[in-house]
């Protein structure tokens, strides 16, 4: 398996406060890697640092290596052109523009690179999210939270990325839509795209992931194959909930997590 993304000793700080104390992480081709952890552990900071999209006050040091190239110092758009895509927690849609325009702009860098069929992913996106086709003419800002999330993921897919990074894709979504979203993410793996998934909904994330990291207060405290982590007593206690201790970790958890209203994210 070839390595798509490898980060070594990545530190990120906002002013004097260090939010990430040297993270190491690898994502392979066609692999779903998840980073779970509590609020404020530095998960979003990790993704922003990888993408080069930290706010002005933030700085990152360490090595971010993508397909063997060191990305240090490159601007966000230069990283995107190389096939990395971030779907941020706040979605960052073009709210006053139509859904279709949002999707078309997702393929902007491919058009600029001179690709003639730069919109060839549109059908795939519409197949994954038929809802977006119905709403293609509507302004993105008028959509519901779930639909906005679909636009954000769809916009990322339009660029045909090799690495897609998702920040809390289930945030604010209804349980049924969360389940759909995770199903789509696991489907994406078949196209060979590498996925780095950040989730508070640890149960659902561990279900679909191949490998997992636990991030706590800026340190990676635990890592291993997702199945192994799902059975790890400390992970079960902290992230999966005590009442589920005796459940087998496989299929039933997803359905339970998807229907149980107590498991609703946020």
């Amino acid at each position: 398996m070839s390595i798509v993304l490898e980060i070594k000793d990545l530190h990120a700080r906002y002013g004097k406060v260090e939010a990430l104390h040297g993270a190491n992480l690898k994502v392979g081709k066609g692999q779903i890697v998840t980073v779970i952890g509590p609020n404020g552990a530095g998960k979003s900071t990790l993704l922003a640092a990888i993408m080069g999209a930290l706010p002005i006050t933030g700085t990152a040091t360490g090595v971010v290596s993508y397909l063997g190239h060191n990305l240090t110092g490159l601007a966000v758009e230069k990283r995107q052109v190389r096939g990395m895509c971030l779907v941020p927690e706040k979605r960052e849609l073009f709210t006053t523009m139509s859904v279709l325009d949002n999707l078309i702009l997702g393929a902007y860098s491919r058009k600029r690179a001179g690709e003639r069929h730069y919109l060839d992913q549109l059908d795939t996106v519409y197949q994954l999210f038929p809802r977006l086709k119905e709403r293609s003419g509507q302004a993105a800002g008028t959509l519901s939270g779930g639909e906005r999330q679909m636009v954000a993921v769809g916009r990322a897919l339009m660029s045909k990325p090799q690495l897609i990074m998702l920040d809390e894709p289930s945030l604010g979504l209804a349980p049924r839509i969360t389940k759909e979203m995770f199903h789509i993410i696991s489907e994406l793996r078949k196209t060979g795209v590498a996925t780095l998934l950040i989730e508070q909904n640890a149960r659902a994330a561990l279900q679909i992931a191949d490998y997992a990291y636990v991030l706590e207060t800026g340190n990676i405290t635990l890592e291993g194959p997702a199945e192994k982590l799902a059975n790890d007593p400390s992970v079960i206690e902290t992230y999966l909930g005590l009442n589920k201790k005796h459940d087998p970790p496989a299929q039933p958890c997803l359905s339970a997590g998807a229907t149980d209203p107590q498991n609703r994210p946020e």
Binding site: A53, K78, Q80, M97, L105, K111, S159
Partner: peptide
């Protein structure tokens, strides 16, 4: 046109535009 839409996109959401590869300086 795509360049025109890209300019509007930058006006609406600068970070969003960078995330789809529209550089702020361009």
């Amino acid at each position: 046109t795509l360049p025109g839409k890209a300019l509007r996109a930058t006006a609406v959401n600068r970070l969003g535009a960078q995330l789809v590869g529209i550089g702020a300086t361009l």
